[in-house]
């Protein structure tokens, strides 16, 4: 209740974060911050258990059909996975550093680091979507894909003035019903692709949600909403982003490093 008077006696040139007052049902802003963090950790627990279903499906099916998973995984290039791991780890660092900057009231750095984190998210999605999903699903490669020269013998189409190149027979590594890849060694390989696309797809969805939160934080930060005494939103966005990273830390070896 004692925090309610923080508004009084402060002029309008005072940054937004200094004028923040806790909700009327809280005894102090610290209590509110602690509660928000606890609430967010509970939410993270639900996210972990959401992915638990995917990990469980992965474990049961891999135990049943190890060869199908081996065959399927051999189509993934670990170098892309590794690069994406690096991108996410760096973005996790920039996110943590950004919170630190807001805690120290270094607004410009905080915003810059938020922007870098957002850019890393875009990088992750580009690698995932353009270099991994698109060729595997459709056989369309972007012309500067480093893997493309290897398959040029089977080129059978171009689009957008040569920006995209179609390789006959490469695509069709789709989940379940839509699987149409002709060179598979294992009858259960469509299942592997189902698990792969469900897991990475839902993870990618979380990347997008995380990026939206970061964008929101960025725009609020431009108005000076976050500072040493109030940065709950950045903190929780950070927690969410780290969780996205955490999931990927487990998905990467499970999907890319099977042998």
């Amino acid at each position: 209740m004692s925090t309610l008077d923080t508004r009084s006696g402060i002029g309008s040139d005072v940054p937004l974060w200094k004028r923040y007052a806790a909700g009327h049902h809280w005894r102090s802003a610290d209590e509110e911050f602690d509660a928000c963090t606890l609430g967010f950790w509970l939410f993270l627990a639900t996210e972990v258990l959401l992915f638990a279903g995917l990990f469980c499906a992965y474990a049961m099916l891999r135990y049943k059909y190890p060869e199908a998973f081996l065959n399927g995984s051999s189509h993934l290039d670990w170098r892309w996975g590794c690069l994406n791991t690096g991108v996410l780890l760096i973005s996790s660092y920039t996110m943590a550093a950004s919170i630190r900057m807001f805690q120290l009231d270094r607004q410009a750095m905080g915003k810059l680091l938020l922007a870098i984190t957002f850019a890393c998210g875009i990088g992750f999605l580009i690698i995932k979507g353009l270099f991994e999903y698109t060729p595997k699903l459709s056989g369309w490669f972007i012309s500067f894909d480093p893997a493309l020269p290897h398959y040029l013998d089977f080129k059978n189409g171009e689009a957008l003035g040569g920006l995209f190149v179609h390789i006959d027979g490469y695509g069709g590594k789709a989940p379940g019903q839509f699987f149409s890849y002709a060179f598979s060694d294992n009858p259960f390989e469509p299942l592997w692709w189902s698990v792969y696309y469900c897991a990475t797809g839902i993870h990618a969805l979380h990347v997008v949600i995380g990026m939206s939160l970061i964008a929101w934080c960025f725009f609020r930060a431009r108005k000076g909403a976050y500072g040493p005494t109030h940065y709950t939103m950045v903190e929780n966005t950070g927690l969410y982003w780290h969780l996205v990273d955490l999931i990927w830390i487990f998905l990467f070896p499970l999907l890319y490093l099977i042998h």
Binding site: P66, H75, D185, H259
Partner: peptide, 28 residues
């Protein structure tokens, strides 16, 4: 070509009949 695209995969090296060379639970 497609199997060697990511040549790290040990079993792919032996060609189209590789699946026959080993006991593979999960193949028919």
């Amino acid at each position: 070509a497609f199997s060697h695209g990511h040549a790290e995969h040990a079993h792919a090296d032996t060609g189209p009949t590789a699946s026959a060379a080993k006991v593979k639970s999960g193949t028919t």
